[in-house]
Design a binder for these strands. Structure first.
Length: 295
DNA sequence: CACTTGACCTGTCCGC
DNA sequence: TGCGGACAGGTCAAGT
């Protein structure tokens, strides 16, 4: 669901909207969604102005003027939706947002700014979380210490990618792509799409993929992630951007959620299987199942 | 150590 | 129409 392109889309939207706005009030109904919240968390945030909205992997970081930061993970069904004071919070909405009246039953946190605008953190399945901690401690979080490089950064090369994949050479390649310590930000959608692009079966052991195909995977992965950012991400069921609007990448997807349809490359019917515990979409002709790995 | 499974949740969809 | 169960999939912890 929210993977790198979706989180980046939200980040870009919020970066246009939030900086300089000052927090007037904070409401949250759910201790688990704010696991480190002290009793006086509101006092920590009231009066703070937003400095910038950053992203690392699938995590959003809202830096505040108080040297504290809000660290947010949307997990599967999290949404961050901004509404200005002139929009109608309680009686529908003025645009084509997929989200209606806010707050709704999935709203976990509401930030109210001094100009009356609000940021809603919705999360139907409550897997997501929001933490408040000193900005200097953000990068000390376990997750950030272990997470791999940003796949779209200019310094991330094909050689880096291949070297990191080969650290787990005996593992199935899809499981390795989904491992956030190998490369940051890839989830189920972009793992399937990039493997189709490079014509690699997701269960192939990394060591059994020819280097030329690993290079194709690097290109395919970066292309797919960038295209999705350009399209505002993928809306499967829950994902919406900062305006409550859907992303259109799935219109361009080749295999994800396209089981039973024709492979755009060869016309064979796309199949859905289960790999690494995830629903997995492949073309059985373009991505032939690998022979049994040699010991 | 590498890999798999379960837990965390709730809404939706399917079959009976 | 109701109901049970499978399913959706990011991440961590526990189990094999």
């Amino acid at each position: 669901m929210p993977e790198l392109p979706e989180v980046e889309t939200v980040r870009r939207g919020l970066q246009e909207l939030l900086p300089q706005r000052q927090i007037a009030d904070v409401w949250f109904d759910w201790p688990k969604g704010f696991p480190n919240a002290p009793a006086d968390v509101r006092a920590f945030m009231q009066g703070a102005a937003v400095r910038a909205v950053r992203r690392r992997a699938k995590v959003l970081i809202i830096d505040l003027s108080t040297e504290y930061s809000l660290v947010i993970h949307l997990k599967m069904t999290g949404q961050l939706v901004f509404r200005s004071a002139s929009e109608h919070f309680g009686a529908g909405h003025p645009n084509d947002s997929l989200i209606g009246v806010l707050p709704d039953t999935s709203t976990r946190v509401v930030l109210t700014f001094t100009d009356g605008s609000k940021l809603f953190f919705n999360d139907q399945r409550k897997f997501g979380w929001m933490r408040l901690l000193p900005t200097v401690e953000v990068e000390q979080l376990d997750f950030f210490q272990k997470v791999g490089p940003e796949p779209l950064s200019a310094s991330f090369t094909a050689d880096d990618f291949i070297a990191r994949l080969l650290r787990r050479k005996k593992s199935g390649i899809k499981a390795v792509l989904l491992d956030q310590t190998v490369v940051a930000g890839i989830g189920n959608i972009y793992a399937d799409e990039s493997l189709w692009g490079a014509k690699i079966h997701p269960e192939t052991a990394v060591q059994d993929v020819p280097e030329a195909q690993l290079r194709e995977l690097y290109t395919s992965l970066r292309t797919v992630l960038q295209l999705s950012i350009d399209k505002g991400g993928s809306t499967d069921r829950n994902y919406v951007n900062h305006e409550g609007k859907r992303g259109s990448y799935l219109t361009f997807a080749n295999v994800f959620r396209r089981e039973g349809q024709a492979c755009p490359r060869c016309g064979t019917e796309i199949i859905k299987t289960r790999v690494a515990g995830r629903g997995t979409h492949t073309c059985p002709v373009c991505q032939p199942k690998p022979p049994v790995t040699k010991p």
